[in-house]
Computed example of a mutant assay.
Amino acid sequence: MTQKFISIEGISKRFPATGGGTTTVFEDLWLPMERGTFTCIIGHSGCGKTTVLNVLAGLDRPSDGAVIVDNQAIEGPSLDRAVIFQSHALLPWLTVMGNVAYAVSSKWRGFSRAQVEEQAQKFIALVGLSGAERKRPAELSGGMKQRVGIARALSIAPKILLMDEPFSALDALTRGTLQDEVRRICLETGQTVFMITHDVDEAIYLADRIVLMTNGPQAVLAEIVDNPLPADRARNDVHKHPLYYAVRNHVVDFLVTRSKSYSDAGKAALDRRNPPLVRPGMPEPAVVGGDSLTSSWPGSSRPSTSQAG
């Protein structure tokens, strides 16, 4: 990677255990993310994915380590980081405009009413809810409520958009439509995104990189999968890409088999600062005089050396 916009540096999380001692949920996680990239993290329940997201949001503190965003350590919640939860978390007494405007006025306290509504309207339109500004949450479908949550999050121009399985409670058609909207918006705005999902196809469709975590307790980052699909991808064409099934099979194999096979010794043997960077289906790069001759998608698996430090 060329620039660490977000840098997770050696974070661990421990909780008091029943009967004394401590339980380590995850330990010594290192992960850099570039500005404008979409990162999905996948792992079985109990590996600490949501805790990692809460640390990024400033809602929780790591037991060890730190998270640096745009050269500043995270010390607590900030309007520079917006979170979209599994539930929409809208204020039921406010309209669509009111919910989004509330976020805008919190970020820019000097804005006039007209400026607040102009900013809110821009993002209400961006998620396709023009005409629904005066409706309250009780008058909206589940998909529309999530659209309001997305508009509210994006309206404050966050440095990072954090999403905790935001589409998991929706029907398949609505989920697909919102995935398309999020993909379009992120491409248009250059938004940096960190998302938790259990849906492999969702991760492949949305993400630039897919981070795989071993099972907890004492979970660690096992691999970072580079997504070979082009940035400008269409849902109907994703499965036609020649490397789609190589990526999908690799991630599914990890979740079904390999994630469960890491012993304590196996986890200890991993290079925590440089999780393997994996490109399924691609040949190893040619090496001449010690330097790799790389194509646009070189190597099937090699250390992500630029993450060190």
Rank of each mutant, 00 (worst) to 15 (best):
M213P: 03
T23C: 00
R35N: 07
A222G: 02
L31P: 07
P276D: 03
I210A: 12
Q179I: 04
P280T: 11
A169Q: 05
P228W: 04
L187K: 12
I8P: 15
A103Y: 06
L126R: 00
I224N: 01
Y102L: 08
T18Y: 05
V251D: 07
T192H: 15
T39C: 11
P92V: 13
M97F: 10
G46P: 00
S112A: 14
V127L: 09
Q115L: 07
W30F: 15
V116T: 12
A157K: 15
E75D: 12
S7T: 02
A269C: 06
T214Q: 03
K49D: 09
Y244W: 11
M144W: 13
K240Y: 01
G36T: 05
T2G: 14
L126C: 05
V220G: 05
V288E: 12
I84V: 15
D64R: 11
R183H: 11
A219K: 10
I196Q: 07
L277V: 01
M282R: 11
K49Y: 04
R279N: 05
G128D: 04
P276V: 06
N236P: 01
D28S: 15
W93P: 05
M1C: 05
D253R: 11
S7C: 07
G58D: 11
L162Y: 00
R109V: 14
E117A: 06
D60C: 02
D70Y: 00
M282G: 03
K122I: 03
D253I: 06
E34R: 14
V52N: 07
V182T: 06
F85D: 02
Q218R: 13
E117T: 08
F167L: 11
V238C: 01
G190Y: 00
A308S: 09
E118M: 02
L29C: 12
T37F: 00
Q72H: 13
Q179G: 02
D253T: 10
V25G: 08
R279V: 03
D237Q: 08
A308M: 10
R235C: 07
T214H: 09
F26D: 11
V251Q: 08
L126Q: 07
M33P: 07
V247I: 14
S12P: 12
L31K: 04
G98F: 01
L206K: 00
Q146G: 09
L178K: 13
Q121S: 15
A73P: 05
S130Q: 09
Q115K: 11
A103C: 03
